[in-house]
Design a protein around this nucleic acid. Structure first.
Lengths: 337, 337
DNA sequence: TTGAAAGCGCTAACAT
DNA sequence: ATGTTAGCGCTTTCAA
């Protein structure tokens, strides 16, 4: 517990306990056979010195690193913290530790983050999305460790992917909307070049509408700011411009919730006169005056399975090198008639 | 770009470029003098091989690690992602990289996370809160690197702290409520033993009320679930039990928002018949029918300053070993008369 | 401007 | 059950 500037080493513990460095190392890692007496002496010495092992040296010597890199676009999206939570929970008792990196939806930043992560030689990598720069793809392909791409399955996969088809999610929502008899449909979403999943949902959505001879009648995009407030503003603007719309499809639940609050305030009959839907099925909605129709992105399950694959604890029959396509679940809530 | 199992080393690049390992190392780190011709040859070789430096070896040799450990209680709290964002932004151009660890508000888990982090010999540590186990406190005290405790300043500090006084925040809110003439006050919060800041706010709140001879008339606590929904339920329960309350103080904005929505639906006159207030000043509120009174926890500023201190770029006159107490700002919104 | 040698703190592999 | 030796892949330091 004495304060020192030079960090303590195994050698210090070795000297303090009168045992070889190797034996100290064994005790500290619970490896091999060590007599209880020796064990206790070592532990006492380590504790009273305040020794913290140097994993850098350990990793270099053993060629093993208990880190798993997790690369996501954003922390403010509300979706990713939940994926992280699921990943953390699974890794908790595997001896692996997640390390998070954030890309801000920028491919070039993603490339940097991947490079940085790989330079620490992690045991595995979990990366959100399938779209990467060529260089990033090359690095991931040659990483020599499990690489799991999560969230999305619509596109070429490097090694293993766990996610949903966002095109299909968009299609399913379109079909539900059409089946409910809505025809004059508006779309409200983010203007974010890097958000490929939102783009794919919109594409799937439009293509299913097109199959029924229906077109999206109005669109509105936003960037930045409070999603709830933006949802309000965008909805007000769109309804002012296109008052005869009978359905509004939002690219996420937060702006959808803003739209819902606006419509309710305006006294618009939901879901009779107009229907609404979002995406993600976030808990948040539980407390709103009405439950917004939405679609579950399976983010807990995605986190769980991705972590299990990286940890080598593959859920039922999955062994890596595969695509695990989860099924998005439609939650009709109260805003589709 | 050839695929290999054994990760590439400096030696591979050295052989491919016909230059010594040392020179390759210099090129890759932009250190020392290297002729442009050599430089280019090395860069070409590294790129075409797909070489990724091994930071583990580099860190061991140089005794320098560009990692900053950031330890927070939770990712789902909405507050911490913002602090992380601010930290990331500041570290972005310092060559330092944040590594996040989550404690789940459990002191014992925090101890483990600190130990793990320190075993990677980071350049600094940012830890949320002032309450730690004795062992954790000892580790932090002997870490030999900058340790910044954030969010809170009410208590003993290990090295440097950046935060607000939550006791004072609670007191300020009580004073504002009393000044507005409310007297029959209820409190709604989390039942979380590890959330010391919420506890301190409540203590400050009650003590300021007590100074005016006022007592909290009813209390309700929750755990888990959607905060918005819980805010609703708790509010409904409390008003059923104590119908004559004229103010509800919530320990965070999310449950406050749930309560607000409930009250509005019930047709309760806000802020006339009853006032409401939360804590955190989250953006979310912008889109609600009324803006909830709240208090800014200065989380961006906290993240910024903490990162600057760890990075050695101390903002105006702060040099570490100090307590930076930021001033919480009351945002009266529309729910205090 | 470039290279050679030594060693960072630990662990694998092999003694004893 | 414990100790010894030889690296892990880099960077520091010194030499050329």
């Amino acid at each position: 517990m004495a304060d020192q500037r030079r960090p303590l080493t195994l050698r210090d513990v070795s000297e303090a306990s009168g045992v070889s460095e190797m034996t100290v190392s064994r005790v500290l890692r619970n490896r091999g056979d060590v007599s209880p007496a020796t064990r206790e002496r070592v532990l006492d010495a380590a504790k009273s010195l305040g020794y913290v092992p140097n994993k850098i040296a350990g990793a270099l010597a053993s060629q093993r690193v208990n880190l798993v890199g997790v690369i996501i676009p954003s922390l403010s999206n509300m979706v990713f913290p939940e994926v992280l939570e699921a990943i953390s929970a699974v890794l908790e008792d595997t001896g692996l530790q997640p390390v998070f990196g954030v890309t801000g939806y920028r491919a070039e930043k993603e490339e940097t983050v991947i490079y940085e992560m790989l330079s620490w030689r992690p045991s595995g990598l979990i990366v959100a999305g399938l779209e990467h720069s060529d260089a990033a793809r090359a690095m991931l392909g040659n990483a020599g460790v499990p690489v799991v791409e999560i969230m999305d399955v619509d596109g070429p996969v490097i090694d293993t992917a766990v996610g949903i088809s966002h095109a299909r999610a968009g299609r399913m929502m379109a079909e539900a909307i059409l089946a409910a008899g809505y025809r004059r449909i508006g779309f409200l979403g983010t203007r974010m070049a890097g958000d490929h999943r939102a783009r794919k949902r919109l594409e799937g959505f439009r293509s299913a509408l097109a199959d029924a001879g229906v077109e999206v009648q109005d669109k509105e995009f936003y960037e930045g700011g409070s999603s709830l407030a933006k949802g309000r503003e965008m909805t007000a603007a769109m309804l002012a411009r296109s008052p005869d719309l009978d359905f509004l499809y939002y690219s996420n639940d937060m702006i959808g919730a803003g739209g819902l609050l606006y419509c309710l305030e305006q006294g618009i009959d939901i879901p009779g006169r107009m229907g609404l839907a979002g995406f993600n099925d976030v808990d948040l909605l539980d407390g709103l005056p009405m439950r917004l129709a939405t679609m579950d992105a399976c983010r807990f399950e995605i986190g769980r399975q991705a972590a299990a694959i990286v940890a080598g604890r593959h859920p039922e029959g999955i062994i890596g090198g595969e695509i695990v396509a989860l099924t998005p679940r439609l939650n009709p809530g109260d805003t589709i008639r």
